[in-house]
Write a protein that binds this DNA or RNA. Structure first.
Lengths: 243, 243
DNA sequence: AGAATAGTGTCTCTGAGACATTATGCC
DNA sequence: GGCATAATGTCTCAGAGACACTATTCT
């Protein structure tokens, strides 16, 4: 004790053995959402190894301290591995840590919420046999690995809040999208219909979208195609939509 | 590989050695704020051991996997150890992890923001020689351990947002407090003066405070003492105050 | 023309901002 | 009374909610 207190830092670091104390396992996990065919989907992966082998869970994994320099690299690696692209929206969600969630022992996961366009990774997902988009409405019938259901719920709750005061959900759409599409996605997240007048007004006044000059034609009047303006991700409305 | 794939989970868990792979170090840290004498203060602790010995930093430490069951227990233990009480407001802030922030190697810290009344822990802090409230205005002149300055800034930014749409900052006050006190704290966090009419109106309409029937007398007209209503912590205003 | 969907006009109403005015204590 | 601070009265104005109305495509 008194010997340690006179030791200089260089000596201390040289003698330091990170394995002298038991340390939690550390993973990163991504709740990656997209919007397609009118429904919100989350990417799930079938576990190929113990524990919870065969169950579906979030893309994620241990931090390989020799291959990644920080948490962001770790989570981006996981997402790119499964989808082939970097998620255009990525935000740290929360960390979950206790001695129960993983049978191997005390473990901590740093979880992230991410959004990407369905089209951007459609081909890749189709070729990766163990990864699949799942309609969030089907989740209640599933048993996911670890506490991944809790993480997905937290991610959805966070996205709901974002839908109330930002345009962040737009990152789950294709690069070019229509107002009705965006509104429907927000309605899904918030869980109730929105006034289209209010929805348009606030987004237009904040200049969050650029008109592409193109239209999407379906049944009815064609809808103007927009893309996100630069810095739209940062914008926060002063007034929230009704919850 | 094929041998592992036919192994059952029990066997796998029995053979599993958590130390077979290098794992990050895991700590928890608390950015604990209070309000006293008209200034916002954060609790700092002088490091008694390497690395960064002698520097001041946030209360925190390694997760002792044999003594705590989850992250919340770990952070509460740290806070109680330094202050003698449980923080009435505690919220996970963010996790920071990379191979640079701690010289001992790849490390992750799960950080929290906490609030408590100055009076509630005044005595205890006075007896703990290595812990001290520091005016946040003095921080720019200090060099803190690890990335603790970044964590404090993130905690302050979070509190600023909370001040714009909630009454959460009130947890940094004594149990009984006045409207002008609360408003001043919000003004400190937001960084600009607020309209007292607006400030009162929204809080009164949301029924977030209970009148204690008591008054605080100083110079001028005595101010009514209030306490937080139950569930006040949960409340979010639909309209934010101006930033 | 009629169906379907996109987009606009416009009124109401809540609540934040601004700031003047009144209230209540102390000396 | 005069000073200091707390609390209220009241006007303006931005912007969300509601909903009727118009516009554009297709069959």
């Amino acid at each position: 004790m008194s010997e340690q207190s006179v030791m200089d830092e260089a000596t201390y670091l040289q003698q330091y053995d990170p394995k002298q104390f038991d340390s939690p396992l550390v993973t990163v996990d991504a709740a990656l959402f997209t919007y397609h065919d009118g429904v919100l989907k989350v990417l799930l992966v079938e576990r190929a190894s113990h524990p919870e082998l065969g169950k579906w869970g979030l893309p994620g994994g241990f931090i390989d301290v020799h291959r990644v320099a920080d948490l962001t690299q770790a989570i981006n690696g996981v997402i790119e591995d499964k989808t082939g692209i970097t998620a255009p929206y990525l935000e740290q969600l929360a960390s979950y840590g206790n001695n129960q969630r993983d049978k191997r022992g005390w473990s901590v996961t740093v979880s992230y919420t991410a959004l990407m366009a369905y089209q951007a990774c459609e081909v890749r997902i189709a070729t990766v046999a163990d990864a699949q988009w799942v309609d969030v409405e089907q989740l209640p019938e599933m048993t996911l690995a670890f506490d991944h259901m809790t993480i997905i719920e937290a991610g959805r709750e966070r996205l709901k809040q974002k839908a109330l005061y930002s345009i962040v959900p737009a990152y789950a759409l294709a690069e070019e999208f229509t107002f009705p599409e965006l509104q429907h996605l927000h309605e899904l997240l918030i869980g109730k219909p929105l006034q289209k007048r209010s929805f348009r007004r606030r987004i237009e006044q904040a200049n969050l979208l650029e008109d592409t000059g193109k239209f999407r034609k379906d049944a009815g009047r064609p809808a103007i195609l927009y893309r996100l303006a630069a810095d739209a991700e940062q914008y926060r409305f002063v007034r929230n939509l009704e919850d």
